[in-house]
């Protein structure tokens, strides 16, 4: 018998499902609204994906090391509020490093709990999601934070400036992706991240100090969050306490969509960038179709479920199997 069997199609969908779904989305969106493929629109998507993308780069490290980071959304709110507040108090040149230092402290604290005390990362970072939100509200007294002189500050360059013909947020995203991509794929630390996530016991038996590696991953994640907070603050020059709320799930969706396994040990920076872009285009397409932005929340959830399912399916080579 010639032709494709159901099983062949199932296997193909299992391996390439995300791409197939993406292509279908693109075709659908283009039919629904011709503006979707307009260069300006594409640029807009990339630009608005930059904040999410920067955060996803850091979370990629955490996920490959076999852990989760659900605190990045509320941590990003914290960074944004802190840098905006300090901007008027000590000036942008000091506010930025101060904000980075505080955010890295939060990352170090999580890294200590997960790496050295070996607590479950889901519980630790879920708790931190709430705790950091409380911290932010305490810091701001619950008020929105605004820069007094929005016209006269150079601080706006990170979110609104352009260089080399590209918006600065995109440049930061690309630069950080390049550096972290090198770190992950070419440097000893990256190799250790894969080993710890792939088989933590074997990594320990190979002399790798697992706690340090996990700690390092959370520091990197916090650094990326601080960078995202900087872009966010600089773009809007004012912010609510909840600016990063819900981003943790979108970030995770992008990382998984890129193909990193939640079991740890696999994934790359490049794939995460692809995941970020797919997510960005889908959300943009939904907006262009005239759907309300809150539809995104449901769609993001659907995408996570789809990505996790296809991740398992790709390993089995079929969409459904009676045994795990």
């Amino acid at each position: 018998m010639s032709g494709l069997t159901r099983k062949d199609i199932g296997g193909f969908l299992a391996r390439q499902g995300i791409l197939v779904a993406f292509v279908l989305f693109i075709i659908g969106f283009t039919i629904a609204n011709a503006r979707f493929l307009d260069p300006d629109n594409i640029m807009g998507v990339v630009r608005s994906s930059a904040i999410l993308g920067v955060m996803a780069l850091g979370v990629t490290f955490v996920v490959i090391s076999g852990n989760l980071d659900l605190s990045v959304g509320s941590m990003m709110s914290f960074s944004t509020i802190v840098v905006l507040d300090l901007h008027d108090k000590i000036g942008p040149a000091l506010a930025i490093p101060a904000m980075f230092a505080m955010t890295l402290c939060l990352g170090a604290f999580i890294g200590f709990l997960v790496g050295y005390l070996k607590l479950n990362s889901l519980i630790v970072t879920l708790g931190m999601l709430s705790a950091i939100h409380g911290l932010t509200l305490t810091y701001s007294g619950g008020k929105n934070m605004d820069i007094a002189d929005k016209e006269g500050t150079w601080f706006s360059v990170f979110g609104q400036g352009e260089a080399l013909g590209l918006p600065v947020p995109i440049l930061i995203f690309v630069l950080l992706a390049a550096v972290l991509g090198m770190l992950l794929s070419k440097m000893p630390f990256g190799r250790k991240v894969y080993a710890v996530g792939g088989n933590g016991t074997a990594a320990t038996f190979s002399g790798i100090r697992r706690a340090r590696v996990v700690f390092g991953c959370y520091l990197i994640s916090a650094f990326c969050v601080a960078t995202a907070g900087l872009i966010q603050a600089s773009r809007s020059l004012g912010s609510q306490n909840t600016v990063g709320q819900g981003l943790e799930l979108e970030v995770l969706a992008a990382v998984i969509l890129g193909g990193a396994s939640l079991m740890g040990g696999s994934g790359t920076i490049f794939k995460t960038v692809v995941g970020v872009l797919i997510l960005g285009f889908i959300q943009n397409g939904l907006l262009l179709m005239g759907l309300q932005f809150y539809v995104q929340y449901v769609v993001t959830w659907i995408i996570i479920i789809l990505a996790v399912w296809l991740d398992i399916a790709a390993k089995r080579g079929k969409l459904w199997s009676p045994i795990a």
Partner: peptide, 26 residues
């Protein structure tokens, strides 16, 4: 002994990956 999802070479050099450097890279 092994990270099964990692390739042969990377498994073999894992304990000394810090010492096998060209500049900052492995």
């Amino acid at each position: 002994g092994l990270v099964l999802g990692m390739n042969c070479r990377d498994n073999m050099t894992l304990p000394q990956v810090d010492d096998l450097k060209a500049g900052p890279f492995v």
